[in-house]
Design a protein around this nucleic acid. Structure first.
Lengths: 190, 190
DNA sequence: CGTTGCATGTAAGGTGTTACATGATTAC
DNA sequence: GTAATCATGTAACACCTTACATGCAACG
């Protein structure tokens, strides 16, 4: 008998993690526009997941709408402009919860291009590699700083924000750890 | 004046990092088949980058061939079966080196779905979240063990393997750090 | 005798990006 | 007055995966 494959749960249509990420953003706030969602994703999600392109967010919203996971309405903006705000439905919240509780945890995906370059160090000089690592180190420091700000923000917020705060702290430490790893590697380069 | 965008260097056709990863594998060994490359990628690249599907490897090889970055020849296998082995060309080595030395370092991409789920913890119970983290922890421990083996292998090998050894050690520490972060998060869950 | 490894590829489809199009308002 | 922010979307394309097709050899 064919071994249990994907274990499609109940009435689940499988949608990508990105869709759940967008739905997840909507599970915190009342109503958000596609534009709002993009800003949010950029300011929070990018630390531990990643920030989808604007166009993809609009696409995902359309999909979520088709599935009945969100509803939307137009709110008048200025004069002639309208904006469309989205709200998660009960069905959407249920689907999202099911996804969160899903016991089959995919491992994190890491694509560390700086390291990929280091791995190919035999093609260039140690100086180049060192420079590359320092550049990566600077990027990481920037991320760490941003993550710290994000953590501070999450800190003074209602109960619902407990988990985001924990995750923000995790991210902070993650970037701190990365700095340590880079430094150790730099030290070993000699 | 339009700000410098992608800085297309010299005669560079931009090919994805994956293509360089495959080319990189070929920069160590003399000749490898698509099949060999897949095994390699699975056993090494996956720790800090990621392992492309078999079919993609064949696709990338075709592209690299078109670009003149690799050459191939058929070697008779058993009876009727042939296998095609690839070898990096001087032009390929030059292109790869240029890529390694490129000063515009893209940051690592992390898609941490377990954390994404934790972030949405308000939708479920702390027990579920704990379970999820323990599951992720077990996966990480497995990766750590594998990375250790890989590091040990890289250790007793010729000069060229110095950088892979450093990277293997980085990966080891990376997974150790991840375990630490998960444990800290678990502790804070109370 | 069934599974795994060896070995190579095609086809289809989903995921995600960039570029483009449009246009108002606000800030420097 | 030029750029940035707000605001939404389409189209084209690149990337990558799964499923499929094929078939021998070796191991248990």
């Amino acid at each position: 008998m064919a071994a249990a494959r994907k274990e499609p749960r109940s009435n689940d249509i499988t949608i990508p993690a990105t869709a759940y990420a967008v739905l997840g953003l909507l599970s915190f706030e009342q109503e958000l526009s596609g534009y709002d969602l993009k800003k949010w994703a950029d300011s929070i999600l990018r630390f531990f997941y990643w920030a989808p392109a604007v166009s993809q967010i609009y696409g995902e919203l359309k999909r979520l709408d088709r599935l009945g996971y969100v509803t939307s309405r137009e709110v008048p903006q200025d004069d002639l402009r309208n904006k469309r705000v989205y709200r998660i439905t009960d069905s959407g919240r249920a689907a999202l919860t099911e996804w969160v509780e899903q016991d089959d945890v995919e491992p994190p995906v890491l694509k560390h291009s700086p390291l990929l370059r280091v791995w190919l160090g035999h093609l260039t000089t140690p100086d180049h590699i060192r420079e590359l690592l320092l550049s990566h180190r600077a990027n990481t420091e920037q991320m760490l700083e941003d993550a710290r700000k994000s953590e501070a923000q999450a800190h003074n917020n209602p109960e619902q924000w407990h988990y985001p705060e924990l995750v923000a702290r995790f991210s902070m430490r993650h970037f701190e750890a990365e700095l340590g790893l880079v430094d150790a590697l730099l030290a070993e380069l000699d």
